[in-house]
Computed example of a mutant assay.
Amino acid sequence: MKGVVIAMVVLAIIQLMVEPGWAISCGQVDGYLAPCLPHLIGGSGIPAPTCCDGVKNIKGMASTTTDKRTASNYVKQAANRYSNLKDDAAQSLDAKCGVQMDIPVSRTTNCDM
């Protein structure tokens, strides 16, 4: 079973390398932000390393203006799913992860950059 999981991860990585123009999906953004939920809801402390890795991945995927708009809309949708999301924790997430994002994590993000 462990070998199957490793093989699937390797295939996914290869597919990303082969298709660099691949569009950003809502599922990808959700997956990258999922480890951030404890921090975004609790609002204190330092985000988990897996959360910061996700933030960095989102930044890396959103290189063009179109990608940034798309990612921004998905981040906004993700933020709006959680009524108990702490806005101050969300807005400081990139800084706490040491990443300068053009895509703020917020329910009120203006996605028309």
Score class of each variant (00 low, 15 high):
1 M>E: 07
3 G>D: 12
4 V>A: 09
5 V>K: 04
6 I>C: 07
7 A>G: 07
8 M>L: 07
8 M>F: 09
9 V>H: 02
9 V>W: 02
9 V>M: 09
9 V>E: 01
11 L>I: 04
14 I>Y: 11
16 L>R: 10
17 M>T: 13
17 M>H: 15
22 W>P: 00
23 A>T: 03
23 A>V: 03
26 C>F: 07
27 G>R: 00
27 G>P: 00
28 Q>K: 00
29 V>S: 07
33 L>A: 00
33 L>W: 00
37 L>T: 03
37 L>P: 01
39 H>I: 00
39 H>N: 11
41 I>Y: 08
42 G>D: 07
43 G>C: 13
43 G>S: 11
48 A>I: 02
49 P>R: 02
51 C>R: 01
52 C>V: 08
58 I>R: 01
60 G>Q: 14
62 A>T: 06
64 T>F: 04
64 T>W: 08
64 T>A: 14
66 T>K: 13
68 K>D: 12
70 T>I: 03
73 N>I: 07
75 V>M: 06
77 Q>R: 04
77 Q>A: 02
79 A>M: 13
79 A>K: 09
81 R>T: 03
81 R>H: 02
83 S>R: 11
83 S>E: 11
83 S>H: 09
85 L>V: 07
86 K>H: 07
86 K>E: 14
87 D>K: 12
87 D>R: 05
94 D>G: 08
94 D>R: 02
96 K>P: 03
100 Q>W: 10
102 D>C: 12
107 R>Y: 12
107 R>D: 05
107 R>H: 05
113 M>G: 11
